[in-house]
Write a protein that binds this DNA or RNA. Structure first.
Length: 609
DNA sequence: CGTATTTGACCCGCGC
DNA sequence: GCGCGGGTCAAATACG
């Protein structure tokens, strides 16, 4: 078994461990671990051993708690609790839940534990009702008992079904409520004298308290901005107690200090340290990896050629702001050794330049998955830490995307959704932009929209949403830190095979006859793990914990598999709302006369001039 | 031979 | 108006 799989399993298990909670003993108890934990355990022999030995020796001490996540929707009256957890992400309420609730954990699609579950239900019925006692009943009576039990179960299922519908409705309502609140909040004047920059920080993986270790991460933070970055990245609620958490968090704040990517890069060290700590705890790995950070959305000036295409491709018009005026950019920071990060898309390099202030050349890439795709990206190493790769995406793909990109898409889509909420204007631009960054197309029709995008992200963002106090900062826990909320985040049916590269299809190895698969790390040659990636995505999106683990795994396969260095990335998303319409050039600018045929080289042209 | 990368020059926006 | 810097182009080159 590869170390990657082991790593993923370890993370997955750790997430499950986070979900565990104390509960009065044994009632719901001794069943097998939940699907996620079980699946993870099966991937790793050692973990598997531990998982299965646990219930035997400890009489269910922790094992039962794992299953609770599934159970929490199965009891009448849990509707309110679910709602509560959805909004607060608080575990305490769940702790008080009657243990009997754990017995009603049948979630229909769970085929793994069906047998055990049925048995337990039977036992529970016997215990409570006292029916079917020993001895003298005839077989027909027992059959009738079973029949009645099955009927009861069906009733229960029906009730559960109704309840789930209510939950869905409630969630949707809450979603819109929060959306409205957020919109109102965004409209409040915040530091109107400064350039408005709305930033979304999405950290995926692990976060820790501000005092996190100084391990092998980014350079130490040195400025106020970095401190602010710490605050934003760490999150507002879960990390203060010094625990390392594995999860995904999204923060939004307004700032005027992040003028360029460099500053944001400088501001990142803490989170990486946190990732390091968490990673070591989680996977007992020699070195940290698998940490993601999504930062930002800036409002900047400048022309927006891609934005025009973006809006056009999206086919959705803005309500109050012309989407063409928006230049959407998503910057991803990855700690990897290769020249490029593996983002699931296929790129062709068309230029390279040494930018001022950074001796590392900046490379320019164009998406070649489909001809005419307007998406471009820039890749440059971070000056402070050469192991960090800063990749900036721009534009929107006009084609469906490989599964690897959709995995990233779901992460970005979270930010997209958040930006969508924060944006009072065009929702399409926002989502398109993030989709572009994630490698997910929203154009030309929504049929290209990844099944993992937005639809899953929208509920993804809602749980645990808290609006911070001063500083105009908001923090959203996506999952991980809040185990209860995570249980609600499985809205998407995995394995949707809308496109050829959806999880159900084998990956397009070397699509287009490329030298290497487009999902492979650009610099490390051909050592991709597309199959693993494809496997993961379906399950990943249906289980947030798996998603987290898979993201870690996904990022981890890039670059430094053997070096033991941490894999870190961050997303920066920018939207330009300030560009004037006049400054928007045509997508294909006619600034230079096309040179047909073997004309003179530019030097000669210049000489002529 | 086809495709991707390299690389020097050009174009354009912005600040002074 | 000028210079600077970022972004892009496209011929040359490398590579499989």
């Amino acid at each position: 078994m590869s170390s990657k799989k082991k790593r993923a399993a370890a993370i997955d298990l750790s997430v499950e461990a986070e979900r565990r909670r104390p509960e009065e003993g044994g009632d719901g108890g001794d069943r097998e671990a939940s699907d996620g934990a079980a699946a993870a355990a099966e991937e790793d022999g050692d973990v598997k051993q531990k998982q299965r030995e646990g219930p035997k020796e400890e009489t269910g001490g922790e094992e039962e708690k794992v299953v609770e996540v599934v159970a929490d929707q199965g009891e009448d009256g849990s509707n309110e609790e679910i709602k509560y957890r959805t909004q607060q992400g608080d575990m305490m309420e769940e702790d008080k839940q009657p243990a009997a609730a754990a017995n009603v954990d049948d979630d229909g699609g769970d085929s793994d534990g069906a047998g055990a579950s049925a048995e337990e239900k039977h036992m529970v019925t016997e215990a409570t009702g006292g029916e079917g006692d020993d001895g003298g009943d005839s077989r027909t009576a027992m059959a009738q008992d079973e029949l009645s039990e099955m009927q009861e179960e069906m009733e229960r299922m029906k009730e559960e079904n109704r309840m789930l519908r209510r939950v869905v409705d409630k969630t949707v309502r809450d979603y819109y409520e929060l959306q409205m609140k957020l919109a109102a909040y965004q409209q409040q004047p915040a530091a109107a004298d400064e350039p408005k920059e709305t930033e979304v920080f999405l950290s995926l993986g692990a976060t820790t308290a501000a005092g996190g270790s100084g391990g092998g991460g980014f350079p130490e933070a040195k400025s106020k901005e970095q401190a602010a970055w710490r605050r934003r990245s760490v999150g507002s609620d879960d990390s203060d107690d010094g625990k390392e958490d594995l999860g995904l968090s999204l923060s939004l704040g307004t700032s005027s200090s992040y003028d360029d990517d460099q500053k944001a890069v400088e501001a990142r060290p803490h989170d990486v340290d946190g990732a390091a700590a968490a990673a070591m705890i989680v996977g007992s790995r020699p070195a940290p990896r698998g940490y993601a950070l999504l930062e930002s959305s800036k409002v900047q000036g400048g022309a927006a050629p891609a934005a025009g295409e973006l809006s056009a491709a999206g086919g959705i018009t803005s309500q109050s702001v012309n989407p063409a005026n928006r230049k959407t950019r998503v910057s991803v920071r990855v700690r990897c050794q290769g020249p490029t990060m593996n983002d699931g898309c296929q790129w062709r390099k068309y230029g390279q330049k040494v930018a001022k202030g950074n001796p590392c050349p900046r490379a320019y890439y164009r998406c070649t998955v489909a001809p005419g795709c307007p998406v471009r990206k820039q890749v440059q190493r971070c000056l402070e830490d050469m192991s960090i790769l800063v990749t900036t995406y721009e534009g929107t793909h006009n084609h469906p995307l490989p599964v690897g990109a959709t995995a990233m898409a779901s992460t970005t889509s979270a930010a997209a959704t958040f930006m969508l909420l924060s944006s009072t204007t065009s929702s399409s631009s926002v989502s398109d932009a993030a989709a572009a960054a994630a490698g997910v197309s929203t154009a030309p029709s929504s049929s290209y929209l990844s099944p993992y995008l937005l639809n899953s992200a929208s509920p993804l963002l809602m749980p645990g949403a808290t609006v911070g106090g001063g500083g105009g900062m908001q923090h959203l826990n996506l999952f991980g830190n809040s185990p209860s909320s995570s249980s609600l985040l499985a809205p998407q049916a995995p394995g949707s095979s809308k496109y050829p590269w959806s999880p159900n299809h084998p990956p397009l190895a070397g699509a287009g006859g490329n030298k290497r698969p487009f999902w492979s790390a650009g610099g490390d040659g051909d050592k991709p793990a597309p199959a693993a990636l494809a496997e993961n995505v379906g399950a990943v999106m249906s289980d947030p914990n798996k998603f987290s683990a898979a993201i870690n795994n996904f990022m981890g396969k890039d670059g430094e598999s053997s070096s033991g260095k941490s894999s870190t990335f961050a997303w920066t998303r920018s939207m330009d709302r300030t560009a004037t319409p006049a400054s928007v050039p045509a997508p294909a600018r006619p600034r230079r006369e096309p040179v047909h045929g073997p004309g003179p080289r530019r030097g000669e042209q210049a000489a002529k001039l």
